[in-house]
Design a protein around this nucleic acid. Structure first.
Length: 564
RNA sequence: UGGGGUGUAGCCAAGCGGUAAGGCAGCGGGUUUUGAUCCCGUCAUGCGAAGGUUCGAAUCCUUCCACCCCAGCCA
């Protein structure tokens, strides 16, 4: 296998992990690929995690293996049950199923404890009473070797006794820790007697008060992989320095299986931050409306915004998997949603800034019914009915008093000229009605007979096509437009304060919008294309039957605005 | 500075000694009852730089440069 095919029928070359795996399979190094997605439940998942999810679950899927969902819950002071529930929901929503039950690092705590005893008995771990500050000093500097802890050469019996006191809660947090006895002079800082266990007198969301000592990431992760039979343990680049330590534990512990760690470059997106810490700050300080604010790059935020699982998966497929640190242009993500939504979203019309138009040659009380396909390129999706009567709404930006505007520059309505109402008649603007302040409050127009589904006779050429809704048969709604959350392409580069880069105009709420009646059936996560406006879906949080609220997922691509 | 990692177009990314895939963005044009979609065309004498090996180098060797990561009792 040297390339792989996707749903669209195109093929792409295998990425470096796929190459490794297919080689391992061919050479019989592994029989079945086991991967895992190992989030810490200390926040909501974001687009960066989506890349990891697609990678790990995708690899298992592609090679006929399995992928575990495993919570790396080794630090009770940052983790919460709310997060584990949200994470499960997000993974499922993306369309992946984990093998068997959800796993928890915490369910292996007994084994880790036994393994800690094993290392102590082998003379490879010791209880160290250096304070955090002292430990830092002893650790040395990059180019300066560390010093050995004065507790490093305690006897096995003494270490066993001290570790038991740690476990029994006889020491306060920070009083001591269990450390591996490796090499204080190693050029790799991770090998300078790394910590294995620390004291945390806190309740754990899974194990309750059973433990007051908790293993560190390093002393847990590889062993979790070993217990679960993970063959390819895939993590991000910053863990590459930990690999020698990962391997050291696997080599020095009686593990049932030997996993291998591989690293890939995490996803970075311009104009956004992907750091759970920073996203949590946005939530905690109220800069956004929760983890699922539609402007957030969280999976739940994007879901509420109208992104689809397919679009996120396509995005992850498109960006590739490598070891070179890269920042992807958000435009790439936007392309993926547009592509999916363009192909699949039913069309509808919604007028965001209503201007009343009276069709003077249509008798009051007469209601005609226009028929439009649900999707212009997919007749199998059926049709929808659009009532049309004497009074309709068009968008105020689709009419201009400036009659000197050329047909090429302004393909909309001007006095005396023609435009087509999408899916209905060609009309001509005859007269505008203004209030005392000079604002246009109404337009009088006339429709051209015989132009439904037909081009006008007598050489009339409409300037363009505009959307509309019937004034007496429509739904009042609110529309929320979004712009990027940050106006700086690299909001958190260097030592920048990312909060300073927050875009004050990232949310625009438009009330008094008029939508076609088919939209009363809208439900959250069902996307529509509001023709000529963009893609929208019902907001699950603020909508009510009396007042639907639609979130703009993304606008239509607009090649025109930049050229005029 | 010690260690680890990475440099191919504006952004991603193939390439694995035989003469620079593909996608996004951009640009030009065509179709169109959505200024959308769709379609066609265009877009690196160049692969971080300089030397070297070779008939032939993005691929091999040497030196140099730039950027990222590590010095939490976070993961």
């Amino acid at each position: 296998m040297s390339e792989t095919s996707s749903k669209s029928g195109t093929t792409r070359p295998l990425n470096f992990l796929e190459q490794i795996i297919s080689q391992d399979l061919e050479q019989g190094k592994v029989d079945k690929v086991i991967t895992r997605f190992p989030p810490e439940p200390n926040g909501y998942l974001h687009i960066g995690h989506a890349k990891s999810i697609c990678l790990n679950f995708g690899l298992a899927e592609k090679f006929g293996g399995a992928c575990n969902l495993r919570f790396d819950d080794t630090n009770p002071s940052k983790e919460e049950l709310e997060y584990v529930e949200a994470i499960k929901r997000d993974v499922q929503w993306l369309g992946y199923s984990w093998a068997d039950e959800v796993r928890y690092a915490s369910s292996y705590f007994d084994t880790f404890y036994q393994w800690a005893l094993h290392l102590i008995n082998e003379g490879k771990a010791y209880v160290c009473h250096l304070s955090a500050d002292e430990a830092r000093e002893y650790r040395g500097w990059a180019s300066k070797p560390g010093k050995e802890s004065p507790y490093r050469n305690r006897t096995v019996a003494e270490n066993l006794a001290e570790f038991e006191k740690m476990r029994a809660g006889e020491y306060e947090e920070g009083a001591c820790s269990l450390r591996a006895r490796i090499d204080m002079a190693s050029p790799n800082m991770n090998l300078r007697d790394p910590m294995l266990y620390r004291i945390r007198k806190q309740r754990h969301h899974q194990t309750g008060d059973k433990w007051c000592i908790y293993p560190t990431y390093d002393f847990a992760h590889g062993q979790e992989d070993a217990i679960e039979g993970v063959t390819h343990s895939i993590c991000t680049l910053e863990f590459a320095d930990h690999r020698p330590l990962y391997d050291w534990f696997i080599a020095n512990l009686p593990v049932p299986h030997k996993p291998t760690q591989y690293e890939f470059a995490r996803l970075e997106l311009n104009y956004t931050v992907t750091s759970k810490r920073k996203l949590k700050l946005l939530v905690d300080e109220g800069h956004v409306d929760g983890w699922d604010d539609p402007r957030m790059p969280t999976i739940s935020g994007m879901r509420r915004r109208g992104y689809t699982p397919a679009s996120l998966r396509q995005f992850c497929e498109l960006i590739g998997v490598t070891k070179s640190g890269s920042t992807i242009d958000v435009g790439q993500l936007e392309y993926c949603v547009r592509d999916d939504l363009n192909n699949n979203a039913p069309r509808a019309m919604c007028v965001l800034s209503p201007l009343k138009v009276t069709l003077t040659n249509l008798p009051a009380g007469e209601v005609q019914t226009m028929t439009q396909p649900v999707h212009p390129n997919r007749p199998e999706l059926g049709e929808r009915q659009l009532p049309l009567s004497r009074e309709i709404f068009i968008d105020s930006s689709d009419y201009s008093e400036d009659t000197s505007l050329s047909r090429k520059k302004f393909k909309r309505l001007v006095l005396g000229d023609y435009v087509r109402l999408r899916g209905a008649y060609v009309i001509r603007a005859d007269e505008s009605v203004k209030d005392a302040a000079g604002n246009i409050v109404e337009l009088k127009a006339s429709l051209v007979e015989g132009t439904v589904g037909e081009n006008p006779q007598d050489g009339i050429k409409p300037r363009g096509v505009i959307h509309w809704v019937d004034a007496s048969n429509c739904v009042d709604c609110e529309v929320r437009l979004y712009d990027r959350l940050f106006s700086d392409a690299a909001p958190d580069a260097g030592d920048k304060d990312f909060l300073q880069a927050l875009n004050p105009e990232s949310l625009t709420i438009i009330e008094g919008c008029k939508a076609e009646t088919s939209l009363v059936n809208a439900v959250p996560e069902q996307s529509y294309q509001f023709e000529r406006e963009g893609y929208f879906c019902l907001d699950g949080k603020y909508s009510s039957a009396a007042r639907p609220v639609f979130n703009q997922t993304i606008g239509l691509k607009d090649n025109w605005a930049s050229k005029v």
